[in-house]
Simulated scan of single mutants.
Amino acid sequence: MRALVCKSFGPVEELTIAERETAPLKPNEVKLDIRAAGVNFPDALMVAGKYQVQPDLPFIPGGECAGIISELGSEVRGFNIGDRVIAMPGLAAFAEQVNVDHKLLMPMPEQLDFVQAAGFCITYATSYYAFKQRAQLKEGETLVVLGAAGGVGVTAIQLGKIMGARVIACASSDEKLGFCREIGADEVINYSTENLKDRIRELTDGKGADVIYDPVGGDFTEAAYRSIAWGGRYLVIGFAAGDIPKLPLNLPLLKAGDILGIFWGGWAARDPKGNMQNFSELLQLVADGKLNPLTTEVFPLEEFTQAFAAITERRARGKVILSMEN
């Protein structure tokens, strides 16, 4: 099989496409013929050796994918050869095949194609966990989304609207903000040309934002937090800007505000039942026609550098996908 291989930590340009043998199938695993895989910002960090987890070298990156089961381990129940499934292998998804523990599989809803399904797990699971378990987002509250046109930002807009929030999308260009309005944002802020703190205060009649969703970090974190409402919740998703900001602790004191870390993978490992319940609810939203996963950028495996660049250069509008189908 062809696979995208990381032989040493460094820039994504040093990754190579190589022929690799799949490992022998364990009794609890299925062999999955991958049709598409989701590309996420942590994948770039992992390849660079800057993620919380550093796999042994060499390794195949990629944490989520969708495909067709081609072989079953002896202990696998509930799945059959030929089933279309969504998988969360954690690693090795940027390849034509992967062996996956059957507990990390979900049946693909018939409403989704492989491209949509491949990008469903990590971003939607992150945002849903952030809103449901951590922020406990309530109907009628105001939600501010930074980096709103990116992969996780799009899911935050969609899920925020489904949960009844008023969504203010923040991004760096009018083009991105137009896209945010198309997918449901109620208000938009261009933080390249507008004062973020002042505009959030204006759009909330001085009250401030109840929940702020921040996958960007960098220069806008403090300005955003200064606009938070009394008792507001600030969700730390990641640091796509590259810089990890420092926040004066008098700000949460004065606002009685919370700063909540969102490490979905860590929570899912500790509460697998809660995680699968979240996925069940998300898949039901898809089945009911309330949620339509968006994938706006699809690249063949050979164009992996362009796929990564769309994320690391923050040009992507929605989810980025690598396709294994030529």
Rank of each mutant, 00 (worst) to 15 (best):
V211Q: 01
T193A: 14
G217Q: 04
I200V: 14
L203A: 06
G206I: 10
Y234C: 04
T204I: 06
E222V: 13
K197D: 09
G218K: 07
I200Y: 07
P215C: 05
A209N: 07
P215D: 03
L235M: 12
R226H: 09
T221R: 00
S192N: 13
A223V: 00
I228N: 02
I200F: 05
E202V: 13
I200A: 12
G231F: 11
R201A: 14
A223C: 00
D219V: 06
W230Q: 13
A209V: 02
A223D: 13
D205P: 06
W230S: 05
I200D: 01
I212G: 01
N195W: 07
E194R: 08
K197L: 12
L235A: 07
E222H: 00
R201M: 15
L196H: 15
Y234M: 07
Y213G: 04
L196K: 12
L196S: 14
Y213V: 04
P215I: 01
V236K: 05
G208N: 13
E194M: 05
G208P: 14
A209L: 04
E222W: 00
Y225N: 01
S192K: 15
L203H: 04
D205G: 14
L203F: 11
T221S: 09
D214K: 06
R233M: 01
R233Y: 03
V216P: 09
Y234K: 02
L235Y: 05
A224F: 09
V216D: 01
V211A: 02
T193P: 12
R199D: 01
D214Y: 05
V211C: 01
T204A: 10
E202H: 15
T193F: 09
W230T: 14
S227H: 05
G231S: 08
D210M: 00
G217D: 04
G232N: 05
L235G: 06
T193G: 12
F220I: 13
A224Y: 05
D219G: 04
T221M: 05
T193H: 09
G217Y: 07
G208D: 11
G218F: 12
S227N: 07
P215G: 02
D198N: 14
I212D: 01
A224K: 11
G231W: 07
I200H: 10
R226D: 12
R199H: 12
L196V: 12
A224I: 09
I200W: 04
